[in-house]
């Protein structure tokens, strides 16, 4: 299978196999007019299988979303067909309006216009807790 190299844009590499579609959705890549390639289950010597996303446009990307979904992703910035920057991402300390608290007892379920904020409380286990009710759901 061949996917053309991109000239100017972003390649998200080393995505855990199966997570590319979630990233496509959560980064709202469906709203872009440019070409976006979702490549699933690519053989990888390091990971066994991985996903890759190629975006044929340089866009402002919410790295917190990426870091939350999969902090091991490589973000490669391509300009004039060449790799000009490799961004390292990590688990964000806070998630703002990235996920919603599902604790039915939480104030966020009834208060209008409230920011959904989660804080990282356990980096090793990747646990985020709602700052309001401390639930991790």
């Amino acid at each position: 299978m061949n996917i053309d190299s991109i000239q100017n844009g972003i390649v998200l590499d080393h995505i855990t196999a199966g997570k590319a579609l979630q990233i496509y959705t959560d980064l709202h890549l469906d709203k872009l007019d440019c070409s976006v390639a979702i490549i699933k289950n690519v053989k990888s010597s390091k990971m066994g299988r991985k996903d890759i996303l190629k975006i044929d446009q340089d866009i402002d990307m919410n790295l917190d979303v990426l870091g939350y979904i999969d902090p091991d992703i490589s973000v490669n910035i391509i300009k004039d067909g060449k790799l000009i920057e490799k961004k390292k991402i990590e688990l964000p300390e806070r998630l703002i309006d990235i996920k919603k608290c599902t604790n039915p007892r939480c104030i966020t379920t009834t208060e209008q216009g409230i920011q959904q904020i989660f804080k990282l409380t356990n980096r090793e286990k990747r646990i985020y807790r709602c700052i309001y009710c401390e639930a991790d759901k």
């Binding site: 604790n103 104030i107 208060e111 709602c130």
Partner: peptide, 10 residues
């Protein structure tokens, strides 16, 4: 005092 958790934080 509020019955919803996190209301005082808000």
């Amino acid at each position: 005092r509020h019955f919803k958790e996190g209301a005082p934080m808000l």
